[in-house]
């Protein structure tokens, strides 16, 4: 933790960055850690990093009022690093826009000043679904379709359409989301059954081939809908069919807006 604080002090004192976006103590049991925006070396002591620091802080790279504060160093978990690369691939961040402070479970801090160094760092990470994630996903895949339908219907019935999933997602950065487009009205505004299904299908589809599985959508959901299952299912689909993984390279085509001539088509008559 002290390494991280020292690094932050050094970056701020030397004016290499104007701000360090990191984790600080949260206000209670519901949030043991939370994002902090450190702008003076003297405030760096409030930085922490431990197992409770889970939010993908890259979400703040896309927030106008945070961007206005100047160049940031971002305390970045593996998911956040992949998010930065994915945002770069989508032309949302440029090289030298930010500095990543890669952190890992052991408390190691690795400053990564360029997208290239982030790529190299990410290449060494295991970006597969964990064994636990695979097992859980498989549990749902193995259900019969009617059980799956019922499961999701019950889950989506609780959806409030508060859009916390969208707000928490660093890749949901559109200034005008599809749900806000009403000519035509693509997604019904109210949180009724059809509106909730269409919203959740749309969210998942628009993240297919882009989501880095940080899990923030599910953590943000106040009613606990396991949105990560949808994302994981689609990223597995994208990996299996197109051999593509999001957030691995700063220059990459989007999986869903490119193709290979030999993409599978056994389902097409």
């Amino acid at each position: 933790m002290e390494t991280l604080r020292n690094k932050a002090r050094e970056l701020l004192a030397s004016k290499t960055v104007q701000m360090v976006i990191g984790y600080g103590r949260g206000s209670g049991e519901a949030a043991p850690a939370r994002a902090v925006f450190i702008r003076a070396a003297a405030e760096a002591e409030s930085l922490i990093f431990d197992a409770s620091c889970q939010q993908n802080l890259a979400v703040y790279l896309m927030k106008p009022e945070v961007r206005q504060l100047g160049k940031a160093a971002l305390v970045a978990t593996p998911s956040a690093l992949r998010t930065i690369l994915q945002l770069a691939a989508e032309n949302q961040v440029k090289d030298h826009d930010l500095l990543a402070l890669a952190v890992d479970a052991q408390g190691e801090v690795t400053p990564l000043a360029t997208l290239q160094t982030i790529e190299a760092h990410v290449a060494a990470l295991d970006c597969n679904l964990s064994a636990g994630e695979k097992t859980e996903l498989q549990k749902y895949v193995a259900l019969d379709p009617e059980q799956r339908r019922q499961f999701w219907q019950e889950e989506f019935a609780r959806c409030l359409k508060c859009y916390a999933c969208r707000g928490a997602c660093p890749l949901c950065y559109c200034s005008r989301c599809t749900v806000e487009c009403n000519q035509p009205q693509w997604i019904p505004v109210p949180a009724h059954d059809l509106g909730n299904l269409e919203w959740n299908v749309m969210r998942a589809m628009h993240l297919a081939g882009r989501c880095v599985n940080c899990g923030d959508c599910s953590r943000a959901c106040p009613v606990g809908i396991p949105l990560y299952l949808l994302n994981q299912r689609l990223l597995s689909e994208v990996l299996a069919n197109f051999n593509f993984r999001s957030g691995m390279a700063a220059k990459a085509d989007n999986a869903m807006s490119t193709f290979k001539p030999d993409d599978p088509e056994d389902f097409i008559r």
Partner: peptide, 16 residues
Amino acid sequence: VEQSLRCLGCGACAYV
């Protein structure tokens, strides 16, 4: 601005 830097602009607070 300082108070709301973290805020993600969702409606969770209002809806609960």
